[in-house]
Structures are given as C-alpha cells and as structure tokens.
C-alpha cells in the first residue's frame, strides 16, 4: 500500500469541517427559531430506538393506546413493532434529552438532542401536543381526574381540532387494543427507550442543543421535578 493510498483512508478534518459548519449553522438557526417561539413546524424524532430522559412530561387530556409502528432495523429493513403511544394535549416538558446511535464509517457515533433547561422546577417546553411511542421506560406515572384503564384504543382521546371538537382516534390505534384515558397526567423521571417522539404543533423551548460525539453516550439521569407545572 502506498502512502497516498493510506492517506485516502484518513479523515480529512479540514474538508469535513467545511461540511460541518454549514450544517451546524442550519441547526443553530433552528435552535434560535425555537428559542423565540417563532418556529411553526413541530419536532419529529424517529427512525429506530431512541434513548430518552426527562424530569417530567405533563399534560391535560392524557391518553395512551397500544399501536402498530414501523421500525427500521439495523440491516435497513423495516418491521412492525407494537408500542404504547402516549399523547399529552397541551403538554409541558421539564427538560428533555434524546440520544440515538449512528454508524458512520464503521464507527459508532451518538446524536444527542437536548431541549429546555436544567431547572427541575420549571416545565419550560410548552406545546399543544406531545406524542411518544414507548417500548420500555422507567418513571413515575401520576394520573388525576377520572382515569380509565383498558379503554378500547380508538376511543382514547387527547387533542381537539380548530373548532374545539375532540379529534377521533388521535393516537391511530387499531380496534380492540389496550388504552388509558386520564384528565391529567404527569410522567416524572422518565428514562428508557422510545420508538419516536413528536411535537406536531407549535412549541416553545428556551434552548436546543444538538451534538454528535464519537462512541456511545447516554443522557444524564433526570433530576426529580420539584413543584407542579
């Protein structure tokens, strides 16, 4: 192998930087837009198993239902998995961290997205709707008001349309699936794996931080929230 050939397999940091900088600028602008609340588009993070950590997710008109979800596997093929889809209308989030592993030139990198602040007393990320597909999470789920367990999945409701009418089957559940319905819900110190997370409407967050680091990283353990939203 010649010296030139060896060089062709090395990382061209200077050239790679040229690719990183414009992309980082776009991401930075995205964060700035979110911080001012001017971003009308929502946030959708999906594409495989995602590690999540948050001090608390809170919302009115809470619902959960067992649904089918298409998941991408490591070999690029897709398969249908079953997940418990949680929906929080008028959601508030107390800090949020998401990580996902990516393979890149044979090496493993971790994409980490952090929203909100580190103050456990504030639910600083405000939304009209939060949807989260759960595979395995730990945390403390509190529900208030009238709470029903084993509700037929399509009968679970969360959000309302522009006219104020309840949106039918907002979690897109097939018939005869397990569901939960509650007036209020607060899910504290969530850690674990989710299939995806969506904030479909306008949302506000004081900060957005996206990093890509080599190796396997996980979100720090979330602090217990203090007080109520």
């Amino acid at each position: 192998m010649t010296e030139d050939e060896e060089c062709s397999y090395g990382t061209r940091w200077g050239v790679a930087l040229c690719a990183f900088l414009p992309a980082a600028l776009v991401v930075g602008c995205l964060g700035a837009l979110i911080s001012t609340g001017a971003l009308a588009a929502g946030l959708v993070v999906q594409g495989g198993s995602i590690n999540v950590a948050t001090s608390s997710v809170y919302g009115t008109n809470f619902g959960a239902a067992l649904v089918d979800q298409t998941a991408k596997q490591a070999d690029g093929t897709t398969k249908t998995v079953h997940v418990l889809r949680l929906g929080f209308a008028n959601g508030q989030i107390n800090g949020l961290c998401l990580t996902q592993r990516q393979s890149f030139l044979g090496a493993t990198y971790t994409v980490m997205i952090k929203l909100g602040d580190s103050d456990p007393a504030t639910w600083e990320i405000t939304t009209k709707n939060v949807v989260m597909d759960i595979q395995r999470v730990n945390g403390t789920l509190d529900m208030d008001g009238v709470v029903d367990l084993n509700v037929n999945g399509p009968d679970v409701t969360t959000i309302r349309d522009a006219s104020g009418n309840v949106v039918p089957n907002p979690l897109d559940s097939p018939q005869n699936r397990f569901g939960i319905q509650g007036r209020y819900a607060k899910f504290d110190q969530i850690t674990g794996d989710i299939q995806d997370l969506q904030i479909p409407g306008v949302f506000n967050s004081p900060s957005l931080d996206i990093t890509i680091t080599p190796g396997v990283r996980t979100c720090p353990a979330p602090a217990a929230p203090s007080g109520t939203p």
Binding site: L84, N138, M143, Y184
Partner: peptide, 30 residues
C-alpha cells in the same frame, strides 16, 4: 379485570395528591 375506573372530584393543574400513582416501569413486548 376488563376495566378499571378511578375518580377524583378535585383534579386541578396543581394537584399533587393524584389518585393514580404508578412509580415503576412501562414495557411493551412482542
């Protein structure tokens, strides 16, 4: 059990005495 209903007549945003309190884990297995 086919169905469970719990009720709280004073549910509020700031309420901390929630009738349903489930500290633990949620898993879905296929």
């Amino acid at each position: 059990i086919y169905a469970i209903r719990t009720m709280d007549d004073h549910a509020e945003l700031s309420e901390t005495q929630n009738p349903v309190h489930l500290p633990g884990s949620l898993t879905v297995t296929t």
